[in-house]
């Protein structure tokens, strides 16, 4: 059997498993239904695995957000600790060479000693919390210190607030921070290879692919590259109206920016200032599942200034098409934009 027909067979089994699952959950399944299902399972282990996938998908459909780790952290640690200990002991007795011969046992003992304070310490620290938005979704989060974070489309942040520090990791997307200043507790945001320390302010951080952009609306912010290869990782101080741009292997570049453009998303708008169409399309595509695609070089050279509403994609496309005299062609997977050929070029 080639791999394609194997995949097809697998999909067919999954579909049978779905039909079983739906029947058995319908509320009217009888004893003989359950026994027929049991026989079906017994015949083939792959069916059982397909049913695992279906049941776990069903379970996943009721998972809730936001997720707090707190109740699990302690359990997790205890499990991890005893597991690690057991495995370490096994490993050391089975493969002493892995730890440098006779030093194996000593190393293991040291690792255990090192673990103990770490264990005590974590019971005091709060567990990180995760907040996330789906494509097209925006959400406001008030942190326990009173600072607020506005999450833009397709964004994930990890928040870790302890009595010593407030640390936030922007995993992806864009977030706007309004920080409650505290003299003795730093507020730090990390994104890609960049560390941003707030000195009492509001600012926007956008981390898309490897490019990170920090825009300060109010107050002062310190930005520093964390990359060990970066020779010039001296902190850069940004004041209101300044923006730092950082890519994977470039130095931090400081420039000025237009605040209305950066904060437009908070008002449900796209604001463009003489931006090229490819840039505009990339920006719009962050907010909608179905991507826009430009077809033809002539269309890529167009640029546009103005405000477009982002409330729904049909409207956004309609406005864009009307203002730039384009043509749109929607397929199942994308929306293709071309130069309008009906009218001669002006």
């Amino acid at each position: 059997m080639n791999s394609k027909s194997q995949t097809n067979a697998k999909r067919a089994t999954e579909d049978e498993a779905i039909q079983w699952h739906v029947l058995l959950r319908s509320g009217v399944a009888t004893e003989s239904d359950w026994m027929d299902f049991t026989h079906w399972l017994e015949e083939d282990q792959e069916r059982n695995e397909a049913y695992d996938l279906v049941s776990l998908s069903w379970e996943a459909a009721s998972e809730q957000e936001p997720i707090t780790l707190k109740p699990y952290v302690f359990d997790f640690f205890i499990n991890f600790f005893s597991d690690s200990l057991r495995k370490l002991t096994e490993l050391v007795s089975a493969k002493p060479w892995a730890f440098g011969g006779g030093f194996g046992v000593a190393t293991a003992a040291m690792a255990i000693l090192l673990l103990t304070p770490a264990l005590l310490d974590t019971s005091k620290t709060a567990a990180p919390q995760i907040y996330a938005t789906a494509v097209g979704e925006q959400r406001s989060v008030t942190l326990q210190d009173g600072s607020t974070v506005l999450l833009n489309t397709a964004t994930t942040i990890l928040v870790n607030i302890t009595p010593q520090a407030r640390r936030i990791e922007l995993k992806k997307g864009e977030a706007f921070f309004t920080v409650q200043h505290e003299n003795d507790r730093i507020f730090e945001v990390t994104a890609n290879g960049l560390r941003i320390t707030d000195l009492g302010t509001s600012f926007d951080v956008r981390a898309i692919n490897a490019r990170t952009q920090v825009s300060v609306i109010d107050g002062i912010v310190e930005v520093e590259s964390r990359s060990p290869t970066d020779q010039n990782n001296i902190p850069v101080r940004l004041i209101a109206g300044q923006q730092a741009v950082h890519s994977a292997d470039a130095k931090i570049k400081v420039q000025t920016f237009d605040a209305s453009q950066i904060t437009a998303w908070q008002r449900g708008n796209f604001v463009f200032k003489n931006d090229k169409l490819p840039t505009i399309v990339a920006e719009i595509n962050r907010y909608f599942e179905k991507p826009l695609r430009l077809d033809g070089r002539d269309v890529s050279n167009l640029s546009f200034s103005g405000i477009i509403q982002m409330s729904d994609q049909k409207r956004t496309v309609r406005d864009l098409v009307a203002m730039l005299s384009l043509q749109d062609n929607e397929t199942d997977t994308e929306i293709i934009l071309t130069r309008n050929t009906m009218k001669p070029n002006q």
């Binding site: 997720i67 996330a132 994930t156 995993k171």
Partner: peptide, 10 residues
């Protein structure tokens, strides 16, 4: 792990 869960929820 929790991040994976968050992504799964999305």
């Amino acid at each position: 792990a929790s991040l994976l869960q968050a992504e799964r929820i999305i």
